[in-house]
């Protein structure tokens, strides 16, 4: 056998003949590998190669085309809403996670909250956009209720279909994601550490400032990065919600991809996509590093 030393299965097969031959059992993994190569790796290669390809041979024009005002604006908008929704989601999610973690670890509340978060963290797209339009859209339930009481949330224009609205809608899946990621870190905190702080004469402030805070900081930062990447990659919700004005990067990509807009430019779409991949890759690398750091103390 070529793959020497791997735990082979003792089956009722004929004994293997010696010598080198094509390892037939690799064929078993081929369909899957081919499929993944065609529908996952090939598209990735198309994006990377396409970003550097022009009509006649390799070019950097797609990359230099990124240096236009509206492209830069799209990246700035994307980074802004991702950062804002990640921060809001992280803080609110951490508070919610803490409220759950301080309860009975096998209680109903915890089961319900973690199940609900598992579902809601995957929620998004058209349905989520509609849910918020039905809530605080111009004829939404809450909006009308507030209007009857003399409060107009849209006195400065309908911000729901603008970037601030997107931040609000994104928190709907960011908070549950934060709870899912941060809850295990909170579970790693031991009550003895608090008792030790108190026996040394420290109060609540000292405990959070010098014990729990520094221990949870890497987990919190890591989770915030994950939330950032999550918001940065989102397309469907924004597509269903944002009407016009300055788009975010995924919307800009879709404008260049579909020919309806008349500005069909697959090369630029691929360059933008490459930019997105790079940013997500950087963020996820930092996330992985922080995860390693987290696991030193917690869990």
């Amino acid at each position: 056998m070529i793959a020497a030393g791997h735990p082979d299965v003792k089956t009722a097969r004929r004994p293997r003949e010696g010598g080198r031959r094509f390892p037939l059992h690799w064929i078993g993994a081929l369909p899957f590998l081919l499929y993944v190569a065609l529908f996952l790796l090939l598209p990735t290669v198309i994006v990377v190669v396409g970003a550097f390809a022009g009509k006649d041979g390799p070019t950097l024009s797609n990359i230099t085309d990124l240096n236009q005002q509206f492209v830069l604006n799209a990246f700035v908008s994307s980074l802004l809403i991702s950062t804002a929704s990640a921060l809001v989601g992280a803080v609110a999610g951490a508070l919610l996670a803490y409220a759950v973690a301080t309860g009975n670890p096998r209680g109903v509340l915890r089961r319900v909250v973690s199940s609900a978060c598992g579902v809601l963290a995957q929620f998004g797209g058209v349905t989520l956009a509609f849910a918020f339009i039905a809530t605080i859209g111009s004829v939404g339930f809450i909006r009308l209720w507030l209007q009857d009481r003399g409060i107009d949330i849209y006195s400065n224009g309908v911000w729901l279909t603008e970037l601030p609205g997107l931040v609000l809608v994104y928190t709907y899946f960011q908070i549950p994601l934060m709870v899912l990621v941060f809850l295990p870190a909170l579970d790693g905190i031991r009550p003895q550490w608090r008792e030790a702080t108190e026996s040394l004469g420290g109060g609540t402030w000292h405990y959070w400032r010098y014990v729990a805070g520094p221990l949870l900081a890497p987990a919190f930062l890591g989770a915030t990065l994950l939330l950032f990447a999550n918001a940065f990659s989102a397309y469907a919700t924004a597509a269903a919600l944002i009407s016009q004005g300055n788009p975010i990067v995924p919307i800009a990509i879709s404008n260049f991809l579909t020919s309806e807009t008349g500005r069909n430019n697959p090369g630029l779409a691929q360059a933008l996509a490459l930019g997105m991949v790079l940013i997500v890759a950087i963020v996820m690398t930092l996330y992985a590093l922080l995860q390693r750091r987290t696991s030193r103390w917690l869990r």
């Binding site: 993944v36 397309y235 469907a236 995924p250 697959p266 996509a273 991949v277």
Partner: peptide, 24 residues
């Protein structure tokens, strides 16, 4: 390897996959 390949779609933004898949 299989695990890595299976979990890869989690980190590639869906919109990027669409850009790559549209010629396919």
């Amino acid at each position: 390897t299989i695990e890595f390949l299976c979990l890869l779609p989690l980190t590639i933004p869906a919109i990027v996959l669409v850009v790559g898949l549209s010629p396919v």
